[in-house]
């Protein structure tokens, strides 16, 4: 489906946030258009959640400004809050209340008219497959169901924009896929989505455009396709070894000074750039001398991960570090 992009609904200009002496966001600028799924991609601590907190009024910027649907976040935050929905990283509805009562309470806070509240809540429960459990307390729900209800709560007042902070974090594969489908459906309903994630694959699948955020600064904004295209001009060969030591990595780097070597896993390396034939010959010769076995060799089509590595210079492993350093 082709999405017709319209006017700018989020405009961010020089947005900056200090926590004490720590610079969490450093003069970031970006725009999000109506109907777009805009992704904020970066490792933990990059400033993704801080951006959402500033844009939704949970925190005040130290400097800079932003407007959402034409309303200034510094002076008209109540108007902004009426028009946006927020799905926080942690599902924070009320354990003691049932699914239906949680949605009704959020509807009351947002001033959804009395007559429309119950119908809207029940419709959302049906959409998210939770209607049969409408009277169950929130605490009895699985992690995936809690995420789904938290998203439903963010939609109860028909927001024009929904902010989703790490929507699939902690979910199993099936629940994450189901949630991504739901997010895709929201876009079809015309909702603008602002998603933060540290999952590269998720950003690639869901987003129309991605801003890559590192240490509080946006280093690149583009479509996933354009980001990947930037790495297509160079070859990428992936080797899997039976055993990968730091000496071997060092020796390969010495032998291929024109190429960039990235360690992907405990036994995998990717070699970016250079002449593929020469790289293959040199690596094979080296490992024959060392008596190490090659398990596989693949020519890799560039992924968003490759683009991320090239743009940020970071190892992809930093993206798999969860909050708290786990």
């Amino acid at each position: 489906m082709e999405v017709v992009l319209k006017e700018i609904v989020i405009h961010v200009s020089h947005l900056t946030k200090f926590y004490g002496r720590l610079l969490a966001l450093d003069h970031i600028d970006f725009d999000v258009k109506e109907g777009e799924i805009f992704g904020f991609l970066g490792p933990n601590g990059a400033g993704k959640t801080t951006t959402i907190r500033l844009l939704t009024g949970l925190s005040k910027p130290t400097d800079g400004n932003a407007s959402i649907l034409g309303f200034d976040i510094n002076t008209e935050i109540t108007e902004v809050k009426k028009r946006v929905g927020v799905v926080p990283e942690f599902s924070n509805l009320y354990d003691e209340l049932s699914a239906l009562d949680n949605l009704l309470f959020v509807a009351q806070l947002y001033g959804v008219p009395r007559l429309a509240r119950r119908k809207k809540a029940e419709d959302l429960l049906k959409t998210f497959g939770l209607f049969e459990r409408k009277d169950s307390p929130f605490r009895m729900f699985s992690h995936g169901m809690k995420r789904a209800l938290t998203i439903a709560a963010a939609l109860i007042h028909d927001p024009k924009i929904v902010f989703l902070d790490e929507p699939t974090v902690g979910l199993d594969v099936v629940a994450a896929r189901s949630l991504r489908n739901l997010i895709g459906n929201l876009r079809q309903q015309g909702v603008t989505l602002f998603i933060t994630t540290h999952y590269l694959e998720e950003a690639d699948i869901l987003c129309d455009r991605i801003a890559i955020l590192v240490k509080g600064r946006i280093v690149k904004i583009d479509t996933p396709k354009a980001l990947k295209a930037a790495t297509e001009e160079e070859s990428v060969i992936e080797f899997s070894f039976a055993e990968l030591s730091s000496t071997l990595i060092h020796d390969i780097s010495d032998k291929l000074p024109e190429a960039k070597l990235v360690v992907m896993d405990y036994n995998k390396v990717r070699i970016h750039g250079g002449m593929p034939g020469k790289i293959y010959d040199n690596v094979c010769q080296l490992i024959r001398e060392k008596g190490i076995e090659i398990q596989s060799v693949n020519s890799i089509r560039p992924t968003l991960e490759d683009a991320f590595i090239k743009i940020t210079g970071l190892s992809p492993t930093v993206m798999s570090i969860e909050k708290g350093g786990k």
Binding site: T56, G57, F90, N92, Y94, Y110, G111
Partner: peptide
Amino acid sequence: RLGSLERLLLSPIS
């Protein structure tokens, strides 16, 4: 503790 207070602050209430 549960972060629910944050939810209240996200709604259009001071």
